[in-house]
Design a protein around this nucleic acid. Structure first.
Lengths: 152, 152
DNA sequence: TATTGTTATACTCTATAACTATA
DNA sequence: TATAGTTATAGAGTATAACAATA
């Protein structure tokens, strides 16, 4: 069994896009047609970041400020997010999820998680231990990677 | 250390999107501004599928036929793909990569692979063995998943 | 009649440019 | 002068509808 860095990289390139397609499909089944993919990613970002401002969100999504602003228009109109002026710096807006927005996000993630867990139950205990460890290792190894991202 | 199916699913949901962002970023750095993401995915599909017809590609990309047709227009104009009439069934078109298109795809994948491999070299041998096995297991476990995909 | 694909048209998403307001 | 955000406008990308050609 080959386990060179190159072979591992190949396996990751084969497997990660497959898993991502599955996750995206399950998430979308719970959010479309209400939310676009970028809107859902915004929901996820706002769920993890308290008091985010528009510039933060735009950077995360790889969008320009005008595009992020319009995207938030949609989330606010859908009752998923709020846009408030900042208390001290009145140039900023403070973005947050509504209760409904948070719930929508949690339900979608749970749907994907349930599907994965059901499949993972087919594995042996030792396979799952190895898998769990490997995911932790990967997360640690790549969590500091900076993405030379769009927009140009 | 918890290794229930649910915990494993959580780790996958944390780690896979992170890895996917990294892979996408590296691939894009080699293909933009020439190719859009769907065009690159089309390149990958045509690289893996000989004699593909337009309907196959549209299904894989989750696009309608008109959208897939326009996307191929772009790849043909860029010299990355060819569109020929089928030999016996003259309703069909046969899609294929040009040498340049194949090369573009291989270079982009190699760039992402090199980045991953460089990082993976930091791991111990035993960590890589576990990782390699886990990727194989995941690939096997989810390779038959059908995606209830767009378009509507 | 069903299948494969294209053309015509409209809508959504995103970017650039220009602007307002605040620090 | 620099920063945070919005409005106006134009360009990609995608969908639906209507069509042509072939099986």
């Amino acid at each position: 069994m080959d386990s060179s860095p190159e072979s591992c990289a190949c396996e990751i390139l084969d497997t990660v896009p497959l898993l991502m397609r599955i996750i995206r499909s399950k998430v979308r089944s719970q959010t479309t047609p209400e939310l676009s993919v970028p809107q859902f990613r915004a929901l996820a970002f706002l769920g993890r970041n308290e008091e985010a401002m528009l510039t933060d969100l735009a950077a995360f999504l790889g969008l320009t400020l005008p595009s992020a602003s319009k995207l938030i228009d949609g989330l606010v109109a859908a009752g998923m997010a709020t846009r408030e002026p900042h208390r001290t710096d009145r140039r900023r807006v403070v973005l947050a999820l509504t209760r409904q927005g948070r719930r929508k996000y949690e339900v979608a993630v749970k749907c994907a998680g349930d599907f994965l867990a059901k499949r993972l139950a087919r594995l042996s205990k030792s396979e799952r231990v190895s898998l769990y460890d490997s995911m932790k290792v990967l997360h640690e190894l790549f969590s500091d990677t900076s993405l030379g991202d769009r927009p140009q």
